[in-house]
Design a protein around this nucleic acid. Sequence first.
DNA 1: TTGCGTGCAAAGGTTTTGCATGGCA
DNA 2: TGCCATGCAAAACCTTTGCACGCAA
Lengths: 140, 140
Amino acid sequence: MENKNYNTVQKQKILEMLKANSHHHLNADEMLFILNAKQLNVSRATLYRYLDVLVQTGEVRKYIFAEGEKACYQYIEDKNHCSSHFHLMCTECGKLIHLDCGKVAELINHIEEEHNFMVDPGRVVIYGICSDCKKEINNA
Amino acid sequence: MENKNYNTVQKQKILEMLKANSHHHLNADEMLFILNAKQLNVSRATLYRYLDVLVQTGEVRKYIFAEGEKACYQYIEDKNHCSSHFHLMCTECGKLIHLDCGKVAELINHIEEEHNFMVDPGRVVIYGICSDCKKEINNA
DNA sequence: TTGCGTGCAAAGGTTTTGCATGGCA
DNA sequence: TGCCATGCAAAACCTTTGCACGCAA
């Protein structure tokens, strides 16, 4: 790794904030808002710079959705583990569900064997609506 | 649909160009370059405006990849059909493969029944490397 | 003391928008 | 003729970068 990784308050707080929100994705504005609310001002530049590092090391995943086009970031609990399965992303609430399931492995195998296509599971996101949001929509 | 859809040369040429390149995705610059090469100057604004319409009607799909972050567009042959299956996207050459396969339907059913998550198949893209590019990489 | 990390402001690149003009129906 | 579509340029937007200063080790 090329960075000498000095330990600074900013980095600590950014990482802490990401871990506390590992259940959903955040964009830069949202992150700065959260940090601000905690009386810690981090500059936008520093945030982006550190996010880049975290994405490179695999600790954080970066998403870009066609609608918003604003980059969203999310802390990945177990980076090695998370490259081997698919993710379900709720387009309503942003919740990320780890789909660690034999059926996925089955489909990946099928695609690689029968369709001769090498899948990169870590990048695959299955969009849809989670059970909680489905309830809310039905109740509305 | 809210647009009265006047027929103009620009729209015709844009759609024609998209259809001719339906096997892969293009970004705005590439499209303008192609149009230019054919001696038809379309303004960037017009291109973006029409692309928006096409995306809304489902004739064109918009992709944003985390790396490039530049929006890519691709004509969808059969928009109704394409909302019911997954797509394989080669990250090397941009080829889009329609994965119309029982295994996909199986996984979708499984996710909806067992994981209680309503999948939106039209938005799902499985990234990886296609057989042609795999060969090239191996030969290199 | 060394040199990485930070903050600020400016730049960068893509996409969107306002406005006057042009062209389809 | 009415009004949508176009082109231009400017604006908007998110993100990156240059530079000087501050701070970790």
